[in-house]
Every structure is written in structure tokens, then in C-alpha cells.
Amino acid sequence: MEDANPLGDYLRARRQLVSPSDVGLPPGGFRRVAGLRREEVAMLAGISADYYLRLEQGRDRHPSEQVLQALARVLQLDDSATDYLLGLSRPRSGPRSRPRRERVPVGIQQLIEVIGLPAFVEGRYFDVLAANAMAQALSPSLRVGANRLRSVFLDPAEQELYPDWEQDLAGMVAVFRSSVGTAADDPRCTQLVGELSAASANFRRLWARHDVKVRQGARTRLRHPEVGELSLRREKLEIGGSDGQLLVIYHAEPGTASARALALLGSITATAT
């Protein structure tokens, strides 16, 4: 599933998400596709319509940063999406090397075992590379070898655990695209995207949007079968020198019902081990 023209595909996807009214243009009558027309993007960015067409068709893949910044403004991209756009136009330095096996640093592995909170290590493709017993007690899918995207889109039990999962899908796909960056055509990413595209209409729709969002912590709600409702913070901490690995830790605000429920989960986990 190789993406032969990532820059053009991204520009096309993003202009279809911007309505004429968003940029101060009249609707302009019947439109065959949603969003802006190519000539409208070109006019607003201050470039010729022919040149913009060449960008979308892949006949010019390395426009200047000035042109890309102008397009980012027209397409209303935030900083993360603009950085992603700039990265798509940079020439590759050579043949893509085979992905290295992701190994969790020994110190991080030891840390998650003694931290006393649900914690796991997430690779750049959202694979679970390490997890402690509390993380697995929180969600059975947080086990070594599982993939977070696959679990959220394809596992009904995981969807039951996260009552807001439908709202979170778009953000998760956008964060995944940011995580893989311009390497969306490497074998691991291609295999995973192909599998999820074939199995999930939701994933196909969201992947086609080309949204980009940085990997960062957020608040999340869970409906746990043993300890009930939980409102937790999910922190994502970059592991230095690990090529995109994150240490993910769940914690609750002290003194809350969620903190007490999390402590109960810890007691249950300790008793079971």
C-alpha cells in the first residue's frame, strides 16, 4: 500500500476539509467535491493554479518553504500539521533502511515494575513493548505484543472499557500519523494500515482525512468491570534515544473516587500475583 505521492495526497485531503466560508469565499454554486477547489487554494496562497496542480499530481514534490507555509495558512493547519507538511516535501537521504527491532531500555523496564501505577511502553507504531501488571489489570489489551490501534478499532471488549472511544478515534489516528511521520510507506506501517483499512470503515474514513496531532497526555474515562468508573490522566513521556518510544502512565487526582478505585485495583492486582 505504498503512498507514491504523499505531498499531493495530503494537500488534496486537507483542502477537501476547508469550506469556502472558512476562508471568506462565497459558496460558488454547485461543487462536485467538498471543500476548496484547486484554483481557490492557489489564489489564496498566491501561486498559479497550474503550479498547485503540479503539486497535487506529484509533478513537483519539493516546493519552497515559503510556498508550503502559504498553503498551510490557506488550509488552516496548526503547528503540528504544518511541520508534517514541511516534512513531506523534504527529499529522502537514501534508501529506507529496514526498521530496527524496538527494544525497551532496561531502566525503563525496571521503572514500570516498581512505579505502583498502571504503566506501559508504546512504540512508534502503537505496539505495546512493555507493561506492568497494573496496566494489564486496567486493560487486558495492554500486554506485550498487542497493538493499541488494532485493539481500539477491532476489539469490542476494549471499546466497552472506554465509554468515549468513538470520540477518541479521530485523535488516535491523527496521533498515529504524526508518530510514523513521513515513513507511512514503510513495511510495518503499510501492513498495519492495510489490515485496519480492510477491517474497519471507521479507520478507512479517518485515515483518509490525513489529520495530524502530536503524541501527548490527556484525560481519559474508563468503565472498569471490577472497580467501576475511572477518570484518569494518561501521561506520555518520551524515552530518550529510543526512536519514538513513549512511557505511558495512568494516574488519578489525589483524594478522588478515581484515586480510591485505582488503589483498589492495585490491591486486587497485588493479591492476584
Score class of each variant (00 low, 15 high):
residue 3 D to V: 11
residue 4 A to S: 13
residue 5 N to G: 02
residue 10 Y to T: 10
residue 18 V to F: 02
residue 20 P to Y: 07
residue 21 S to H: 00
residue 28 G to Q: 05
residue 32 R to H: 03
residue 35 G to D: 01
residue 40 E to G: 05
residue 40 E to R: 03
residue 41 V to M: 02
residue 46 G to T: 03
residue 54 R to E: 00
residue 56 E to I: 05
residue 56 E to V: 00
residue 57 Q to P: 00
residue 60 D to L: 09
residue 60 D to Q: 11
residue 63 P to R: 10
residue 65 E to D: 15
residue 68 L to D: 10
residue 70 A to K: 09
residue 71 L to F: 05
residue 73 R to A: 13
residue 77 L to I: 05
residue 83 D to H: 14
residue 83 D to C: 09
residue 89 S to G: 06
residue 91 P to Q: 10
residue 92 R to Q: 12
residue 97 S to N: 13
residue 98 R to Y: 00
residue 101 R to V: 15
residue 106 V to K: 13
residue 108 I to Y: 05
residue 109 Q to W: 06
residue 110 Q to K: 15
residue 111 L to C: 13
residue 111 L to S: 11
residue 112 I to P: 04
residue 114 V to T: 12
residue 114 V to K: 14
residue 115 I to Q: 01
residue 118 P to S: 07
residue 119 A to I: 11
residue 122 E to N: 14
residue 123 G to I: 12
residue 124 R to L: 10
residue 129 L to P: 10
residue 130 A to V: 06
residue 131 A to L: 08
residue 138 L to E: 11
residue 139 S to K: 07
residue 139 S to Y: 10
residue 141 S to Q: 09
residue 142 L to F: 12
residue 144 V to P: 11
residue 144 V to F: 11
residue 154 L to F: 07
residue 155 D to L: 09
residue 156 P to T: 06
residue 162 Y to W: 10
residue 162 Y to F: 13
residue 167 Q to W: 11
residue 170 A to F: 08
residue 175 V to G: 08
residue 177 R to H: 01
residue 177 R to N: 03
residue 180 V to L: 02
residue 181 G to H: 07
residue 189 C to S: 14
residue 194 G to S: 04
residue 199 A to D: 01
residue 201 A to P: 03
residue 210 H to Q: 12
residue 214 V to Y: 04
residue 214 V to T: 15
residue 217 G to I: 05
residue 219 R to E: 15
residue 225 P to S: 01
residue 233 R to S: 15
residue 237 L to Q: 09
residue 251 H to G: 12
residue 253 E to W: 07
residue 256 T to S: 09
residue 256 T to Q: 05
residue 256 T to E: 03
residue 263 A to Q: 13
residue 264 L to N: 09
residue 266 G to Q: 08
residue 269 T to Q: 09
residue 270 A to N: 05
residue 273 T to E: 09
